[in-house]
Design a protein around this nucleic acid. Structure first.
Length: 684
DNA sequence: TTGACTTGTCATAAT
DNA sequence: TAATTATGACAAGTC
């Protein structure tokens, strides 16, 4: 038994862990707040599913395994602690107690988000070695697995074998025909097994921590060291810019893929899962179990496991998901099983596909539930994404990625206005789609609102639940679907907080609501920053814009990014650079204008100076002319001809010769002489 | 309410 | 050919 770290903290650990456990013939049950197993309708409830019922919880509510009436609702299954249904009045509740008494330990729910991993029968001829057998063998036939197997072998073929009920197709078919029968079978099984288990349990307790546990502790210690070393590497990388740290990260990943780091085999996992005493389950994380690449563990696990049987024996959760009363969440089984699974996000060719990691293995049953079903769900979501695409960011994508509904609306409105489209039309359309996409959480018992009831109104922190392992390529597919689920929790907030829902948003003033719900930080963010935040792009806008194009392309190719994210990042880069270019352009234009204005001022100043100089020159010329005029009159007033008469200045002019002598020349001669000089000049 | 200004964005041409 | 830059034009927000 193992208490594992929540899958979302390991980005994609869900699929890997599911695959791994399926390969091992183990049954992985999610003790998430979604309590997916609660979706199981009573007719499909089987022995192993009864084990899924939660044991004593640390929360204020406990779960009873059976609905009070009718369907497999959730609200009815919650009851205050200490007020559990009377076993006598509820034989099925007594059944649960009997099953618990089989010795399958229930993990105390000391963490809200934890994995409850327990063993069930593999359901085939090798079943004794498939799950319980392998687990028991791996754990030296100690503990619960052994006890269960012993109990199952103690009554072979008498209908009391839990594995026969759990995994036998014929038995399952009978269940569907007569839902009450398996209950009796389980009761029989539990009754017989209970006695033997009491003995085994006492023996187990007497042994205390066996040598097996010591080995596990040593193993965990070694793995902790490995993890510590890895964390140190990561902390070193975190101090560098991303595009500088990429090389380091890549080399480390390559090391990991090459198997130089600790690989965890399935045998180890089985031993750890089944040998850990209940009280030591806490504090063991997924990282403890998978210190290296999860794929390593998967590869190593292929040694001993009958894949096809181990994987496909259990379809309960799958059915549970599909048997939702609200068919908006349901896919046709034929389409589910017969149609080839389309690669989720086909554009991302480097996607880690769980099916591809298992060559030759057709995965059906439980694995498809988590893997395929999530992909189906994701495809549905992506279908909506395609429909309601607006600009480069999509409302649905935001909804699926843990973005607050108010922020989604805000982004939508912004993007809508950016695109130049009619705000009313596109807004109503997209919001309608957004709401319709949430119809599955409101329409029926499988809706997320009901799920919330099942988890006692606990609303996970989206920042935690929706943490996406962007740097972990394998973590996105499952995240998308689950995040969508988690995200929709925000639609069922307390009445006082309903203002944050799109409904109220549409009913009240937009800007007021926007400003009300966007905190100061968000308001200070640019639009692209909010877009990047909404799509959980693990790079800052500044990084995206300023990053060298080579690093940028490397980043796009090496990180698992959706088309939407890549498109947004390219848009951010384009707009960011264009924004800078526009700023530079405007600055340059302003500089040019300012320079021209300066030039104009300078030229105007020069013009004024020239004007003043011209005026001064004109003034000087005028003065000289006046002086010359006075000189003429003075000279001619003193001149006399041969007869002693004054010389008429209108008929004569004064002409200075080159030697400085002054001659009195008749004007006619001066005029004719000038004409002759002009003619000579023209001839030349 | 209006106009000027700023800023972001897009389209397109140039580099 | 892709990426970047430059720039005109437009729209939205602000004062």
């Amino acid at each position: 038994m193992k208490y594992l770290k929540p899958w979302w903290s390991d980005g994609g650990g869900l699929l890997h862990l599911t695959i791994l456990l399926s390969l091992a013939g183990l049954r992985l049950d999610l003790d998430l707040d979604l309590d997916l197993y609660l979706l199981l309708p009573p007719p499909t409830l089987r022995w192993d599913e009864l084990l899924l019922a939660r044991g004593p919880t640390s929360s204020s509510y406990a779960l009873s395994p059976f609905p009070a009436s009718g369907g497999w609702g959730r609200a009815e299954q919650l009851h205050p602690k200490g007020r559990e249904p009377d076993p006598a009045a509820d034989p099925e509740g007594r059944l649960l107690r009997e099953v618990r008494a089989l010795g399958v330990p229930f993990i105390p729910r000391t963490r809200v988000d934890a994995w409850l991993v327990h063993s069930v029968a593999a359901g085939d001829a090798d079943g004794a070695h498939g799950l319980l057998g392998a687990a028991a063998a791996a754990s030296s036939a100690e503990g619960v697995g052994a006890s269960l197997e012993d109990s199952s072998q103690a009554a072979p073929g008498d209908g009391g074998d839990p594995r026969a009920v759990a995994s036998s197709p014929s038995a399952a078919g009978e269940e569907e025909k007569a839902p009450a029968e398996p209950t009796a079978q389980v009761l029989d099984a539990g009754g017989r097994a209970n006695q033997e288990n009491e003995v085994l349990r006492e023996r187990h307790e007497a042994m205390g921590h066996s040598s097996q546990n010591e080995e596990n502790e040593q193993r965990l210690s070694a793995q902790e060291k490995s993890l510590q070393q890895k964390n140190e590497d990561e902390s070193k990388i975190a101090d560098k810019p991303d595009w500088e740290a990429e090389k380091t990260t890549q080399s480390r990943n390559e090391r990991s893929l090459n198997g130089t780091e600790t690989a965890f085999s399935l045998d180890d996992l089985s031993q750890m899962l089944l040998s850990q005493p209940e009280n030591s389950l806490e504090g063991i994380s997924l990282g403890d179990i998978f210190p290296g690449s999860i794929n390593d563990g998967m590869n190593s696990s292929t040694r001993n496991i009958n894949f096809s049987q181990a994987i496909s024996h259990d379809v309960n959760l799958h059915d549970a998901m599909l048997l939702c009363p609200d068919n908006t969440f349901r896919r046709e089984p034929t389409a589910r099983t017969s149609q080839p699974e389309e690669p989720f996000l086909q554009s991302n060719s480097h996607t880690t596909n769980p099916e591809q990691t298992l060559p030759g293995t057709h995965l059906t049953g439980f694995l498809p539930l988590v893997g395929n079903q999530m992909r189906n769900l994701s495809q549905d979501l992506l279908h909506d994404l395609d429909i309601s695409i607006f600009g480069e960011t999509n409302l649905m994508s935001l909804a699926t990625e843990g973005f607050d509904s108010m922020e989604v609306s805000q982004l939508f409105e912004e993007l809508d206005s950016d695109s130049g489209l009619s705000l009313n039309s596109s807004n109503s359309t997209s919001v309608t789609k957004y709401n319709s996409s949430c119809s599955m959480c409101e329409g029926g018992a499988t809706g997320y609102s009901d799920l919330e009831g099942a988890v006692g109104g606990y609303y996970p922190d989206p920042s935690n639940l929706c943490h996406m392992g962007w740097r972990n390529d394998s973590g996105f597919h499952g995240d998308l679907a689950i995040q969508h689920i988690h995200h929709n929790h925000t639609y069922h907030v307390e009445p006082g907080a309903l203002d944050s829902t799109p409904r109220s948003f549409s009913q009240h003033g937009k800007s007021q609501k926007i400003n009300k719900h966007l905190n100061d930080t968000d308001r200070n963010l640019s639009r692209d920053e909010r877009r990047a935040k909404a799509l959980h792009i693990p790079f800052s806008v500044d990084e995206i814009v300023r990053m060298p194009v080579e690093s940028f392309n490397n980043m796009l190719s090496r990180h698992y990014l959706t088309d939407l994210q890549v498109s947004l990042m390219r848009g951010i880069r384009r707009r960011g650079k264009n924004k800078v270019a526009a700023q530079n352009c405007r600055k340059r234009k302003l500089d040019i204008i300012l320079n021209l204005e300066d030039d104009l001022c300078n030229l105007q100043a020069k013009k004024e100076i020239l004007k003043r100089e011209r005026a001064q020159y004109n003034k000087a010329i005028t003065t000289m002319k006046q002086k010359l005029h006075h000189l003429y009159h003075s000279i001619f007033s003193r001149l006399r001809d041969d007869d002693g008469r004054p010389v008429n200045p209108n008929h004569y002019v004064l002409e200075c010769s080159q030697d400085g002598s002054v001659l009195i020349v008749p004007k006619e001669l001066v005029t004719s002489g000038h004409k002759k000089e002009n003619r000579k000049g023209k001839r030349k």
